[in-house]
Structure formats: structure tokens, C-alpha cells
Amino acid sequence: MTVKELLKLDEFEAVNISDDSRIIKGGYCGDLLSWVMGRAEEDNVFVTIMVNVNVIAVASLINVSCVVICENAELSDELINAAKQKEINLIKTPLASFEACACLSNLINA
């Protein structure tokens, strides 16, 4: 599945999209960034409720295909600008992490 395909769903809203052709191969969900860095893999979707700019640095280092921020957590301009600058696909959803992952898992394995 590509980021573009994911964005066709109403639940997932684009905040910053730098490359919607990125392919999503699996995912990792977590809010403790060291765990995420230790476990997430390139081309994963990174699902979190964390909204500080370190999220973007971690996403960039791992080279995830996109970041999904759950529960419509409030996004600061600083975060959105960091995503733009580092060319990170940033998506938000009203779904809770569990529901978002269930949904993404179905889509990825479809």
C-alpha cells in the first residue's frame, strides 16, 4: 500500500505530504522514542500519539514511509514545519492507536 492509497480513507488526513508514492511495508506503534528507534524499520508506518518535534527526527532517522498521529492530537506549527523541512509524510487520524493499527494492519495485509 502507498501513502496515497492510505489517504483515500476518510479516517486519515494529510498534514504534510512530501512523497505520497512511498510504500508502507508494515508498521510500528509506540510513544517511547528509543523503543521506536530500536524496533521500527524503514518503510514502516510509525503510529504514535507523541507530538513533539523529536518524532520527526526519529521518523527521519528510521526513514519511515509516514507518521500517523492518533486521537487528533494537537499538532504545533513547529512539528508541521519540521515535517516539511525533513520531508516526512505526516498524517493525522481521530482513531486511537489500537484502532488505527488494526485498520492499517488490514490495509497492509490486504
Binding site: D31, L32, L33, S34
Partner: peptide, 15 residues
Amino acid sequence: SLGFGAGMGLPNMKS
């Protein structure tokens, strides 16, 4: 609260 301090930093660096 920023997502760090999980005690994984040095172990990650080593691994």
C-alpha cells in the same frame, strides 16, 4: 513526557 527516558538509550547505542 517527550518520549525519552525509557532507559533504552545506552543499550540501543551498544546494540
